[in-house]
Design a protein around this nucleic acid. Sequence first.
DNA 1: ACAAGTCGTGCAACCGGTTGCAGGGTTATT
DNA 2: AATAACCCTGCAACCGGTTGCACGACTTGT
Lengths: 394, 394
Amino acid sequence: MGEVFVLVVRWADGGGQKNDTGWGKRPFPFKNLDISILPCYNATGCIKRQGLIQIMTDKPVRTIADIAELAGVSKSTVSRALSNSPLISEETRERIQAIAQAHQYQINQPARRLSMQQTNTIAFITHGYHKEFSVEDLFFMEMLGAITSALSQKNYDLLLVHVDPYKTDWVHDYLNTGKVDGIILMTSTHKSQHVQKLIEVQAPFIAWGVPVTGANYCTVTGDNLTGSRLATEHLLELGRRKIAFLGGPEKDRETQLRYEGFANALIAAGLQPDPNCVVHGWFSRSCGIEGMNQLLDKEPNIDAVFCNSDFLAMGAIDVIRERGKRVPQDISVVGYDDISLAQYSNPPLTTVRQNINESGRLLVNNLIQYLETGIVTNVSVPVKLVVRESTMPG
Amino acid sequence: MGEVFVLVVRWADGGGQKNDTGWGKRPFPFKNLDISILPCYNATGCIKRQGLIQIMTDKPVRTIADIAELAGVSKSTVSRALSNSPLISEETRERIQAIAQAHQYQINQPARRLSMQQTNTIAFITHGYHKEFSVEDLFFMEMLGAITSALSQKNYDLLLVHVDPYKTDWVHDYLNTGKVDGIILMTSTHKSQHVQKLIEVQAPFIAWGVPVTGANYCTVTGDNLTGSRLATEHLLELGRRKIAFLGGPEKDRETQLRYEGFANALIAAGLQPDPNCVVHGWFSRSCGIEGMNQLLDKEPNIDAVFCNSDFLAMGAIDVIRERGKRVPQDISVVGYDDISLAQYSNPPLTTVRQNINESGRLLVNNLIQYLETGIVTNVSVPVKLVVRESTMPG
DNA sequence: ACAAGTCGTGCAACCGGTTGCAGGGTTATT
DNA sequence: AATAACCCTGCAACCGGTTGCACGACTTGT
């Protein structure tokens, strides 16, 4: 350490009893120094006072202890100053923050997380229909984008976790490990197993979709009942009478609600839902192809079809055309979700728009609210019918 | 703590000098107990010996100190046993691991990360063309899927970071904060600024794309030269002679290389690239529309177009048809990337397939290799021409 | 029997933050 | 002038792991 210096600091605005604060009372530990005067800003960003001593040594500043040494204060004071604790005087706080900034100090997150038992990170759990992501996962992708935006506004990070839909052992890697504070669950297949497991281990999570009845956990979902009603009423208004339902999995709650809204709209118009005009499958394009073929085999004179996803609709349109009919002249097609691809489809799809941005925002905000307060929310986000050429000639 | 018990343990395989090991030598700290015999497994999964005492108390087991107390050993021993250190005897290791498993112990990651100065997490940096993800980001999405898979095989987590393409201040949030060990950079617009910044601050990163000449950092890219050559040769073999180039940004290295491969193929066939048949823009569908209109305005008798992305190709096809020409009969169209959407396009796209899975794997493995060894790699991943109906009548 | 070597374990420091509590200095009160 | 109140700041413990080093027990060699 070589010789010991004592540095007496005299503030530029001098006078009074503060003449020898700061370094004045401590032995000075460094040798090679640059000393420069830094302006000191107040809350409004104006220069309030000149007089900060910035000490630049060859020793890198990585920890609050380093800053404490430079500023001649204790670790606690630095910690408090950097987190804007009201315990610290404005003067000290500004000085310490200026030093931190001058040395490009970055807080060590693992240390902070260990100490605070909080990570400001959430896990987004999903899986592809296939091993990798593909266009069929577009809805998830768009939701992921919305969630990422919402999280960054809240100063949270997002850990992306790709899971095997058949296994729930991923839970142990992210629960009680301090990797994340909470979980956003968004898997379409086998969702119930994952939800079950999360409830079982009392994980802090929120799920996309209709809540399992009786269970008490946070959810956000689109308004399926209204969405399907709007779509069906639109088709009825166009004069369609033989309307088919090309649905998702039969045991899927969303699908059940969409069927309910569909059937209600038919009944309200004095029609009866025809079992021959209903098929179920996944939400994929290939199931759209398969399902539409089944429907037309059973009921060749269908004049409209309400599909539970945009991909189902695209598959259906291909089948309809292959079979020599026209969309929308012979058969009107409505999709669901309004993924960004829907408008580029041929013809552009009439579809029920899920409010993806709002849903992502709610997933984030309600999860964080749950983490902070324990309040369980179940939200249904409004949807909107977007009319394009797949139901009405352009 | 109440009374003090001394529990003498006699192993089930008894005898010898080991009769009173384990708890035998220590005062016993608990009151409410369930004591049960657990089988103890050896490395091959067979029961090796019965005789482990499992102690279940009302006190939850959350830390290695808890396990240490239960096992009657020190924290160090537990830490070493759980990480399979060779310093620990097989017997002790098995006993401790069994206790940990029985109590569903999960290691505290922030503590481990703080201690080891390593997080086993990498950041994936990207941005949407738009504020949110949309179908136009599909290439990124598919790459993200491949990277996620590769990372989970390496036992790494992925932090998804959405950045403003015009700003590089995100760097400070993830560098020297202990949030991540390394960065995978994958932004298409303004990539060079981000690369520049990362080099400047000496960040451990790998980037998708051709390396800036002179700079020394890890990269993975598709083989642009070969890709564009294959595409062009394919069009030439079909007898096309007036081939247009619908490119990405003119200053983009990938685009430059693709132009080079394109021009070389033309020259090798005895043709000259025609400046009137070249336009540049972004990789988006809307730029495809704009660019194709420009091309046809300047050269109405174009008979093929090589597009630098699948979205450019889709936009181009729409324009060609709108202008009363047919694809592929009048104009053959080739895309680039082979995103999963390309095969569903109308007509299905002939395109240059980027090996996304392999590229993702390389991004991950080479980054980790760099982190461990400092070895800088620059890889070019082979591409492949996929012929579909947009160039040849079906 | 004793010295050297090996093996397994414990001690204590360390990673870099946060925070309850104590206490010194200054100002307000009587 | 003495006392109380208040405002800052420092001390030290704590979060939950990892690891260098010391040391005791047991094995081996002579």
